[in-house]
Design a binder for these strands. Structure first.
Lengths: 219, 219
DNA sequence: CCGCTTCAGTAATCGCGATTACCGAGGCGG
DNA sequence: CCGCCTCGGTAATCGCGATTACTGAAGCGG
């Protein structure tokens, strides 16, 4: 159902390892704390490392030349990111920014690659996470190409809702997730409100009619 | 540079295996021939299998409710596809269609998963291919959100060009890769032609000014 | 060589969403 | 309690790309 609710969607990357193995992992990683707003990497800064979000929240996004932001992914605890530089050779035109005070573990690429051959479990989990990521990116692409803003907003709300309520998201946040203007997002939200599908409060949206909202979101 | 020029971008999935291992692989896979136009799977048909394109060409695409087509990927020999159902649990709202008479090897999910744990090399290659795929999907998303049609056409031509020439692509094909109308694609192409950046012939486009084309494509 | 099908060129209209320009309200820090 | 900053509401204009409607040229099959 939801894409990022449980980190990368799977169990912790190191789940099932013995205490000893975990100590070994400790030895070769470093843990740092970041404050909300801190930027972990920007395009060009090929950190050559895998990051593990232990606590907090991180946003992966791209910027248009004119400064519009498109959020690719919102990461929750137990997600990892930055692996691209370790695995493909490809660099990434992305930014990673801490959106809530976070604790992040950094693992060297070299170490990761050693793990990958030695621990098929780990490779497997990364593979699964990648799969979800491809799916997510392609779904977002399809939505962008095929649907209008109200539908995309509706879909986002449904994906993001916990218990029929979406909290902590500003209109600006919603706009950035869709890559549109804040005004456009506000309009779409008001449109949905007028249809009695949602109710809007400051940083809080309640879903009133899940069924019809799904309708609008395009099934 | 190019995304699909060399299959999934890596060596053959089974490269480096011993003759014996290859015979083993033979035993657990089946090979079939498909004619241009054949549809290998559609949404819902969870084939539960990994496909390997040995010869020919395959297109992965999605359809809008109104029937517009968005091509996610063009696959060349040595690419694999359909793994999503084996790895993530997620099904795919995608179609796979043969665009040139093809020879395709089918491997059971179960077999694949056994390979994944036993042969880190294989897992590694799939991981790399997935990485490229994530990158590609996110790039396409960014382009769609941030750039206009001329820029996206220019970028597509640059990606697709072999030796400064793009052959075999109709305007319709180009439109489908971008998820836009054929007329819109034609317009953009003519615009580029007017600027003397390309020359257009039936199913053939020549790149005249790579530098300025890159400019327009957005660096 | 004829007819049909595939491809490509053009034009006109229309609506959505970008873009610009403000205003007003809620909260927070001091 | 005041001022500032974050959030959210509105409106008007504009341009791009969707959508509709044809025309015409280039191959191909017979």
């Amino acid at each position: 159902m939801s894409t990022r609710a449980d980190g990368n969607g799977g169990p912790d990357l190191f789940q099932g390892m013995t205490a000893e193995e975990l100590r070994e992992v400790e030895r070769v990683t470093s843990t740092r704390n970041f404050r909300r707003g801190a930027v972990i990497y920007t395009p060009g800064e090929t950190g050559e490392a895998l990051f593990l979000l232990r606590e907090g929240a991180v946003q992966i996004y791209r910027m248009s030349p004119e400064g519009r932001k498109l959020v690719i992914a919102h990461l929750l605890p137990h997600s990892f990111f930055g692996e691209m530089t370790c695995i493909g050779q490809g660099m990434y035109d992305t930014f990673a920014e801490v959106t809530e005070d976070s604790t992040i573990v950094t693992m060297n690429c070299e170490v990761l690659n050693r793990l990958l051959v030695g621990k098929p479990e780990i490779a497997r989990r990364i593979l699964e996470a990648f799969g979800r990521r491809v799916l997510e990116a392609e779904r977002q692409l399809e939505d962008t190409v095929f649907k209008g803003i109200p539908a995309r907003v509706a879909a986002l709300l449904l994906r993001e809702a916990r218990n029929d309520s979406v909290d902590g998201l500003t209109h600006q946040d919603i706009a950035e997730r869709l890559g549109v203007y804040r005004e456009t997002a506000t309009n779409a939200l008001n449109e949905l409100k007028s249809a009695n599908l949602i109710s809007i409060g400051r940083k809080h949206i309640a879903i009133l009619d899940r069924a019809r909202l799904s309708q609008i979101a395009g099934e």
